[in-house]
Write a protein that binds this DNA or RNA. Structure first.
Length: 603
RNA sequence: GCCACCAUAGCUCAAUUGGCAGAGCACCUGUUUUGUAAACAGGUUGUUCUGGGUUCGAGUCCCAGUGGUGGCUCCA
């Protein structure tokens, strides 16, 4: 792998050019289609079309076949510079292109009317075969550079997409394709997709009896089955312990709050789109809470605070409810009720940097312990021209500087994104990549000068002056639901022993070994392990098959020899047979693996 | 929310294209007692997602709704 930017790579040119060839084939199939845009993307490319009729599988097959034929025919990509007038003539029957031409000529503007690009006097077009597109390039010299056997458009289904990403505008049909330099790379990509499907947390969630989503309960409202609840509870207890070691204090607050709470916090207007309708309670309005911070602020103000009390770190696994459009819901990763591993730190300004760094270290520790190493950090700052943020300019500057300084000191791989801040302050997000190469925002840390102000939070400083604390919001998991969804895919359902809902199953070889199996079960339970003896009326081999499917870390086979020698015969998940092992030796080894949060099972 | 596709037993899927709703797994009952990836026999399981319509006849065709999937928009 080189450090070359994707935009400069041969692969980028191949994909960009393949998109044009696909558009040419599509126009042969649908001569009345209107073409929109067709850029390269990660792993491939797409092109958006406004089609006269719905597209079906047969059309896709036809287009793919035609596309490969065009690719094999060695067409040159030629670049021309044209004036806007010439461009309008060339694309006179392509309304989307005409709109793009207008924008280029006028210089593009952002949502607030600020210029993004200078007005263009010359436009570039690319032509290959019988197809011409308004395009900045770059492209391959000739379709010869593209191996037709490394291109596919049938791997992914066509889908709707809005013109210019605006849900109020025309919806187009997006055809996705993938293109690689060699057929082998295409095969690897296919294999990756298949692996991702196998790891899908919705499929594994059902197979491993972790959770269900029941339409009668409601979409986006998962029900945790015993196995899933054990997993979730184990994670919670683990994080709770880490937090207690670091001076966090537990608090518990209700899932509803008087609407005045959210009007005071300022969340109410900002979260209007994601809140549920208020609930009338004896004439007062209550909200299902969309976040936990206001409750924690009120705990802070329940007593007078001294500078000696700070920092105060309030932690709660707080369940919140947010409205999500039905089409957005997906397994555990996008739900309507979820639990944030939330904490709010109330700190003096002189403690901000140190506390912030401690939080970042905690998050690094959490991810590192789970072997989630493919993550990056994103500093979200405010967009200077937008009015959706509250608070004093200087405070924003200070907070942003503190975050950047913390990232520098900790040597974090970070980048800054404007406009990604919370409305009340800048934030640092941890973005993890999963097996499908999708990015998920998980842990988040936010600096907030605004809520302390709105709730009039104070402490008495050493000079006997009343001063304002700074707040840090943070959640390493982000939400337990999403985090577990990603963990399931991360481990492909084969959790490390400390997280596994069932850590060991004892399998007697014959019915006469049942008593010993139960004895082993009881012993392991007294040592705090999650185990069960399988006394079903079926043979040993079928039991092994069944528990293999459930990804049980340790299978303990017991028969005459084991009873005689007080041993268990250990079979690891992954099918390694460790043979007979003294009972005490197994317990000691297993406990060591569990207590050290190890991802290894060998003893 | 929008576009497209999909919906048959707990799960995975059949049903000769409009003509008696089935198989494997799971589950239940027996028999069997096996040293590391499926013992044998029998049995239970359905408002074919819901509601309308077309037809002598609908799992199959049409309409509406609900739910799911892939995207878009949005997001912890």
């Amino acid at each position: 792998m080189s450090d070359q930017r994707y935009e400069d790579s041969q692969l980028y040119k191949i994909r960009h050019s393949a998109a044009h060839v696909m558009a040419e084939a599509m126009l042969e199939r649908f001569p009345e289609a209107k073409i929109a845009i067709g850029p390269p993307i990660e792993d491939g490319f797409y092109y958006d079309f406004d089609l006269p009729t719905a597209i079906n599988d047969e059309d896709i097959k036809w287009v793919e076949k035609r596309m490969k034929k065009l690719l094999a025919q060695s067409h040159r990509f030629t670049l021309h510079e044209v004036t806007p007038a010439q461009a309008r003539e060339i694309f006179h029957d392509q309304p989307y292109k005409l709109e793009l031409i207008d924008d280029l000529v006028n210089g593009r503007l952002d949502d607030n009317g600020g210029p993004i690009a200078a007005p263009a006097e010359k436009l570039t077009i690319y032509t290959q075969s019988n197809f011409t597109d308004l395009c900045r390039g770059p492209h391959v010299e000739s379709t010869k550079e593209i191996n037709p056997k490394a291109v596919s458009i049938s791997l992914r289904r066509p889908a709707g997409a809005y013109w210019r990403g605006d849900e109020k505008r025309q919806q187009l049909t997006r055809i996705y394709g993938t293109a690689w330099q060699t057929p082998e790379e295409l095969r690897d990509y296919r294999a990756r997709l298949e692996e991702a499907i196998k790891r899908d947390h919705r499929v594994l969630g059902e197979k491993l009896d972790l959770f269900v989503i029941d339409p009668m309960v409601g979409k986006g409202l998962p029900l945790w089955l015993p196995n899933g609840a054990v997993l979730r509870d184990t994670l919670e207890r683990w994080l709770r312990e880490i937090q207690i070691e670091r001076g966090y204090l537990p608090v518990v607050t209700p899932h509803l709050g008087n609407i005045e709470l959210y009007k005071t916090s300022g969340h109410y207007p900002y979260y209007a789109d994601s809140q549920y309708s208020p609930i009338d309670v004896d004439g007062d309005e209550f909200l299902l809470r969309p976040m936990n911070c206001p409750h924690h602020c009120r705990i802070y103000s329940s007593q007078p605070r001294s500078y000696r009390d700070l920092p105060l770190r309030y932690a709660e696994f707080g369940t919140v409810y947010r409205y999500e459009q039905s089409g957005e819901l997906r397994g555990l990763t996008r739900v309507r009720g979820f639990t944030v591993d939330d904490a709010h730190l109330f700190v003096r300004p002189d403690q901000l940097l140190g506390e912030f760094m401690a939080v970042v270290k905690l998050i690094q520790h959490v991810f590192g312990s789970l072997g989630m190493t493919d993550f990056r950090a994103r500093i979200g700052t405010r967009d200077a021209d937008s009015d959706k943020y509250v608070g004093d300019n200087q405070l924003w500057e200070e907070a942003t500087a503190a975050i950047v300084s913390a990232c520098e000191t900790l040597g974090l791989d970070y980048h800054i994104e404007e406009g990604e801040a919370a409305f009340y302050g800048p934030k640092l997000d941890f973005i993890v990549r999963d097996v499908l190469k999708r990015e998920w925002q998980l842990g988040t840390v936010q600096v907030d000068y605004n809520l302390p102000d709105r709730f009039d939070l104070e402490y008495v400083d050493s000079d006997n002056e009343r001063k304002r604390p700074v707040m840090i919001h943070r959640a390493p998991f982000g939400s337990l639901e999403r985090f577990i969804g990603i963990l399931i895919e991360h481990f492909a359902g084969a959790f490390p022993a400390w997280l596994a809902p069932v850590q060991a199953v004892i399998i007697p070889i014959r019915e006469s070994h049942n008593d010993y199996a139960v004895e082993v079960e009881d012993l392991l339970k007294t040592r705090g392990m999650r185990v069960k003896a399988d006394l079903q009326n079926r043979n040993m081999r079928s039991k092994i098959k069944q528990h293999r499917r459930m990804n049980i870390p340790w299978l303990l086979i017991v028969g005459d020899r084991d009873i005689e020698n007080r041993t268990v015969s250990v079979r690891l998940r992954g099918d390694e047979d460790l043979g007979a092992m003294a009972l005490a030796e197994f317990v000691g080894g297993a406990r060591e693996r569990i207590d050290s949060y190890s991802q290894e099972l060998g003893l």
